[in-house]
Design a protein around this nucleic acid. Structure first.
Length: 210
DNA sequence: ACATTAAGTGATT
DNA sequence: AATCACTTAATGT
């Protein structure tokens, strides 16, 4: 665990903070598809992603999902910050997009470290900022892009976070993430394939244009 | 060979 | 862009 933390965070945090993280954090390994956070759940720990990718989803009243953004290694979830400050419940759902390793830090250390370590404070603020930017980008995508562009962007994002141009998924799953129907996804994917931007196969898609 | 699940398509709104 | 109804194709048993 020591090496893992240092590998990803040594350049961000000072030695003393790294020691503290080692002391109070617990390493968690999860497999692809594992649900890490549920809507309404009380947040007891702040995750630091060491490896892998996590997708963050919002859900509407009917239970339909919408993908907000991906979290990659070196990131944390800004949701947990705001939640443990106001001790409110999670407004989002988090699911491991790939196998992932993360460190769970009890929320009680959050405030203490904010004043104790300026590197922690900087990390939290920067992390908050990048999350905000990603969310803005998602809003832009939703508001201004057509569905075919949204699908292509979604595939490219997924290829990026998994570091693999081949994505294992079904048309139905893409439809859930983008909050549309499978038929529409199938049609537009076909169009993208004709434009030589992707390659379609059963249960996997290869992104050609990255 | 058969059942199941994923993907493709025309027509309609 | 969504939905329906249906077809075709891939895959597991």
């Amino acid at each position: 665990m020591k090496q893992l933390i240092r590998q990803e965070y040594a350049y961000l945090f000072e030695e003393e903070l790294l020691c503290d993280i080692e002391k109070v954090g617990s390493l968690k390994k999860v497999k692809k598809g594992t649900q890490l956070m549920e809507i309404g759940a009380v947040i007891t720990a702040i995750p630091l992603l060491l490896d892998g990718a996590v997708k963050i989803l919002r859900e509407d009243a009917k239970g339909d999902e919408l993908l907000l953004y991906f979290i990659e290694k070196g990131d944390s979830c800004a949701m947990t910050f705001s939640c443990c400050m106001g001790s409110s419940k999670s407004k989002i759902r988090a699911i491991a997009e790939t196998d992932a390793k993360l460190i769970m830090l009890p929320v009680t250390y959050m405030q203490l470290w904010m004043t104790k370590y300026q590197s922690w404070q900087k990390f939290i603020l920067e992390s908050y900022h990048t999350r905000m930017m990603e969310l803005l980008e998602t809003v832009d995508t939703l508001a201004f892009l057509k569905m075919d562009e949204r699908i292509l962007k979604h595939l490219q994002d997924r290829a990026k976070v998994t570091h693999n141009e081949v994505i294992h998924t079904t048309h139905q799953n893409i439809a859930y993430d983008l909050h549309t129907s499978r038929v529409v996804v199938s049609r537009l994917l076909k169009k993208l394939e004709n434009e030589a931007k992707i390659e379609l196969h059963r249960n996997w898609i290869k992104v050609l244009e990255l």
